[in-house]
Design a protein around this nucleic acid. Sequence first.
DNA 1: AGTGTGACACTGG
DNA 2: TCCAGTGCCACAC
Length: 112
Amino acid sequence: MENENFFQKVYRITKLIPYGKVTSYGAIATYLGAGKSARMVGWAMNASHNLEDVPAHRVVNRKGLLTGKHHFDGTNLMQQLLENEGIVIVDYQIQNLERVFWDPSKELESFY
DNA sequence: AGTGTGACACTGG
DNA sequence: TCCAGTGCCACAC
C-alpha cells in the first residue's frame, strides 16, 4: 500500500515472523527495499511498544544480540519470551543463530 | 525546513 | 560475533 508508512511495513513483516524464529533489523530493511535503513527498523520497534501484535522480541541485530532488551518491561522479558519459544540465549546472545534465523527476503515471496 | 536521533550494518585497522 | 569509526535514512520536534 503506497499510503503505508515505513513503520507499518516493518510491523507487517515483523508479524509474519514464525514462532520460534528470529530475524534481523537489516533483513527486514532489505526486504522492504530500504536497504540501509536498518536503524529505522529498530526505531519502528520502539514505536511498536503500544501495538500488541508486533513480536518485537523476535527481532535482533545481525549478530543475534538482544540489543533491544532494555526497551522491554523488566530486565529479561525479551529473553524470557524467546526462550519460551525454544530459542537458546546465553549472555543476551542467541545461540545457533543460523538455525533459528528467518530471512524474509528468502522465506517470503515479495508481497507487500 | 533544518537538526537531532536511533533496538543497525559495513569497513578498515 | 574484534573494535572504532563512518554511513544511512525515515521520523519527531
